[in-house]
Design a protein around this nucleic acid. Sequence first.
DNA 1: TTTTACCCTGTAATATTTTACAGCTATCTA
DNA 2: TAGATAGCTGTAAAATATTACAGGGTAAAA
Lengths: 242, 242
Amino acid sequence: MSDLDLFEPLLNCGTVEELHTTTASIAGQLGFDHFIYGVQVNTSLTRPYQFILNGYPKEWRARYVEHNYQEVDPTYSHCITRRRAIPVIWDSRVFTGDKAAKMRNESKEFGLQCGASFAVHGGHGEAAMLSLASSQDTSKAEQNIVSIIGKSQLLACYLHEATQRIVLSKGSLLLTKMELTLREKECLLWAAEGKTGGEIADILKITERTVTFHLQNAGNKMGASNRQHAIARAISMGLIAP
Amino acid sequence: MSDLDLFEPLLNCGTVEELHTTTASIAGQLGFDHFIYGVQVNTSLTRPYQFILNGYPKEWRARYVEHNYQEVDPTYSHCITRRRAIPVIWDSRVFTGDKAAKMRNESKEFGLQCGASFAVHGGHGEAAMLSLASSQDTSKAEQNIVSIIGKSQLLACYLHEATQRIVLSKGSLLLTKMELTLREKECLLWAAEGKTGGEIADILKITERTVTFHLQNAGNKMGASNRQHAIARAISMGLIAP
DNA sequence: TTTTACCCTGTAATATTTTACAGCTATCTA
DNA sequence: TAGATAGCTGTAAAATATTACAGGGTAAAA
């Protein structure tokens, strides 16, 4: 069975439950006993949306949340906060600092003997991470992690892809038949580049009044309340592009 | 030699030249004769910044650029335009359509017999892809690609990480200096939602003056000339996600 | 021929943003 | 303790954007 066949089932999942069992199965085939996948989308920056697929022992997960370990977890800061692209293998050098070391030691009591964390960043600003752990405390288990680190990273990619389709696409912006005229797009594009109405007028060889007119029409079509809103929507919806 | 030792040299590169030779070496060890890595940052909508590390035959690269094949290349649209997270193996099913098939056939004349493309998306809105190709036209070469697809994906991650450090964090892009504070992001987000300074002030329970202050700081960090520009950049670069 | 879509322009009051000046507090780290 | 960073606030003039009124044209489709 090739690696691709291994991940294929993820692309066929339709529900969160399927996603969970399928991921658990694949992680198991790679030699991992536990997994946890989390994705964060900054829909609201004060309360970012988080989706978590938990394959960790419930007790440990509860403790993690209760003690707000996310704040001190170096794997979280590596993957999500700092948005690094490379994986991090759980190592004593990783868990530096008293709080992090304490957290790591506690996690071992719940069966997370060794493991690694993998980052995936989506093209729409979302940050995700997959942690895979083994309950075996042997050098053989550690060596296994290194030897299949590529497959593990790929699992993170496939899982993220599937999550995006099943979970994250719900709130996506609707690309309806919103059609902007040429002039509207031109004005929006220049406005998005920071040009003022007067400057756009000079560029397009029309009056400032007409620029206002086109931007107003574009805004109305998109339900925008002002120029900034119109620009934000146009970009988000992919209506203006080079 | 473990996989991690294989990629380690990438993290020690200091120049673009080192990056090139190191990547070529690793790709070679994986059995690939050619590679190309490209990253795109939407600092500006009209002129996105592109950095390319070319390990393809120069003649083919020149032809690709000349004929603007980027427009029809399904691997480009998969990785960059659609921002998928999973790799794509070059397959006749991938290169559908006359133009894409024609391009693919031409590429074979330049020694790109089989290969695959890997996407990496950074945490700052940049979209990157790595294509790896073999000049051997055998089923064995194709099987090799599948068997090392995990390592290849990992190479893409490490290469992107190194590029981010060496190229993207310098010059006018300043991705590292582009760290926005929580307040700056909050203000930008609400401004992008069409709120005025006064409205944002009410939402965040601060004065309108302070909202102006944060938006000004955010704009300066991103080199924006006004509020609209700041919003456009923040969205394009994935710094905020409305 | 009428309708429709797109494009263009004017005036003027009002609302909002930009800019330049200035100063405050709190926290963390070297 | 000093410095850096983040957050917060004030005033006031000047520049821009928004809004509501008004009007004009062309070209293609119904």
